[in-house]
Structure formats: structure tokens, C-alpha cells
């Protein structure tokens, strides 16, 4: 049963539908010439919900993430986002300026490689403060204060605020990138392999930090990962992709513990046990 079926059933039973989806993706498709990037992907994302998109390299998960987050124009299909005023907007019908404003304020994007999401030659504090200035903050003291507070939340010592991220370790850079994204209190954050390339102990610390922030802030997250353990720890719901198509979707623990599709069974059975 899909979410809309459930809502319909609720409506029939005379129960008002509670809240509305934050993001609605319909039949999203992106082709590269004759090759399929992703095809016919549809789902709803609810406020505060964490959705993992999993699949192996080349399965189309990053293409999908980029199409949803307006970083890559889809060939067809739509993405609707519920704005703060409650109105639903088609993100590909907005003006470029509106879309950019959305990405700087209400959305965040955490890249796998922090270099893609940070400015390496300005200070850690400025990396965080920059997003605040983009939304109109001008008071230096307030911005610096907010930056220090956010660095503390991602466990970066206050005395590193004036250091450039190129002097930071990989794990610290990733935490800084998260602070930079969350400082504007977005409602939706996209993450592309946020723990890829980190040592396992650093990865565990980052995952724990993310779990805490997601639940404290009530963030909705779409996280792309090839690591099923990361998906299990972070997400409520999961989409499994292969060759650009969704082959299984559902509650994360159900997809992992009771996989249906042959490909999902193969993925789950390929996890190394420690």
C-alpha cells in the first residue's frame, strides 16, 4: 500500500490526514544519451523522515540525488517541495534565484568529499558564517557566535575557529561541512556518501553525531550510501536502486531483514560480518 492509499483510506474513515509530505518526487527520469541515469522514480518524503538510497556504484543513486536537489536537470518527471508557508512548489518551475535561495537556506547538501562543500582557504568560522550571511545576517559578533556554537555542536574546539579547513583531518572537515549546512536550520538535507572515505572509528563518531542532530532538529534527510550498515543506522526508509531503477523500497529494517527482490537479497547477503 502506498502512502497515498493509506491517506485515502484514512479520509474514507473520516480521519483527517495529518501532515503533508515535504517532498514529492514523481516519475523522475534522467537519461544520458541512450544510457539511463535514473528512470521513473517516485516517492514522498515526510518532515523529519530519513530516507536512504542504496545501491552499488553506477546504480544511479547519485544521479537521482542530484536531480532531486536541483543540481542536475531531469529529462522528465517532477519534484515538488513544500515551502515554509505550506505551499507546494515545483522546484523546476522556480526561477534560478528562488532555487538558489532555497538551496542556501531551507536545504543543505553534504558532499562525500568535504572539499566540494567547503571553502578550503577561508577559516572554519567563515565557512559556517558564510551561509548565515547569505540569508541576510550582517552582525559580525552574532555570526561569529553562531559559528562557534555550531562548531561545538559538531565537536570542533573553539580554538580552531580561525583555522582553515585544509589544516583539519578528514573527519573534522566532514563535521565542519555538516555545521556549515545546518547553521541556517534547513528542513531538508541531502547527503552523498557522508561517511565514505573515513576510518571506521571516525565514521562511527560521525554517524552518531548525525543521528543526534537529525533527531534533535527534526531534519528530513535523503542520504545516498552504498553501505547498508550506514543506511540501517541512519534511515527510517530505504530505496534500493539497480541500473537506474528502484527495485525495492520500504521500511529500512524490513528491506534489510526480509529482502524480497533478488538483487536486494544479493546485496544483503554480501555484507561482511565482523
Amino acid at each position: 500500500m502506498t502512502t497515498s492509499d493509506t491517506l485515502e483510506a484514512l479520509a474514507k474513515a473520516g480521519i483527517p490526514a495529518p501532515e503533508k509530505p515535504l517532498l514529492t518526487v514523481e516519475k523522475l527520469t534522467r537519461v544520458y544519451g541512450k544510457r539511463i541515469g535514473c528512470a521513473d522514480v517516485s516517492f514522498d518524503l515526510w518532515p523529519g523522515e530519513v530516507l536512504a538510497i542504496v545501491g552499488e556504484s553506477g546504480s544511479g543513486k547519485t544521479t537521482l540525488l542530484n536531480c532531486i536537489s536541483s543540481r542536475l536537470t531531469p529529462t522528465c518527471g517532477t519534484v515538488h517541495y513544500r515551502m515554509r508557508d505550506g505551499a507546494s512548489a515545483d522546484i523546476y518551475k522556480m526561477s534560478e534565484a528562488e532555487r538558489r535561495y532555497l538551496m542556501r537556506t531551507d536545504w543543505g547538501f553534504v558532499h562525500q568529499n568535504p572539499i566540494d562543500g567547503l571553502r578550503m582557504t577561508v577559516s572554519a568560522g567563515a565557512n559556517v558564517g558564510e551561509r548565515l550571511m547569505a540569508v541576510g545576517n550582517r552582525h559580525y559578533g552574532n555570526i561569529r557566535g553562531a559559528a562557534i556554537e555550531w562548531l561545538a555542536r559538531v565537536e570542533i574546539e573553539e580554538d580552531r575557529v580561525d583555522d582553515q579547513p585544509r589544516t583539519f583531518s578528514g573527519g573534522m572537515r566532514q563535521r565542519l561541512q555538516i555545521a556549515r549546512n545546518l547553521v541556517t536550520e534547513p528542513r531538508l538535507v541531502f547527503m552523498d556518501e557522508p561517511t565514505g572515505g573515513l576510518d571506521v572509528s571516525v565514521q562511527a563518531r560521525l554517524l552518531d553525531l548525525l543521528r543526534g542532530l537529525v533527531s534533535d532538529l527534526g531534519l528530513a534527510v535523503i542520504v545516498v550510501t552504498h553501505d547498508l550498515a550506514v543506511a540501517r543506522l541512519l534511515s527510517d526508509r530505504m530505496i534500493v536502486m539497480k541500473e537506474g531503477r528502484v527495485i525495492e523500497a520500504g521500511l529500512t529494517d524490513r528491506v534489510l531483514d526480509d529482502p524480497r527482490a533478488p538483487y536486494t537479497q544479493l546485496l544483503v547477503s554480501s555484507i561482511l560480518q565482523v
Partner: peptide
């Protein structure tokens, strides 16, 4: 109210 776990959406199961 009565809900059916077997056919519930992921969100309702949670």
C-alpha cells in the same frame, strides 16, 4: 482506531 500492520505504510508502522 484499528489499523492493519500487514498492509501499513512504513510511516504508519513507525
Amino acid at each position: 482506531r484499528h489499523v492493519d500492520v500487514a498492509s501499513a505504510s512504513p510511516r504508519l508502522v513507525l
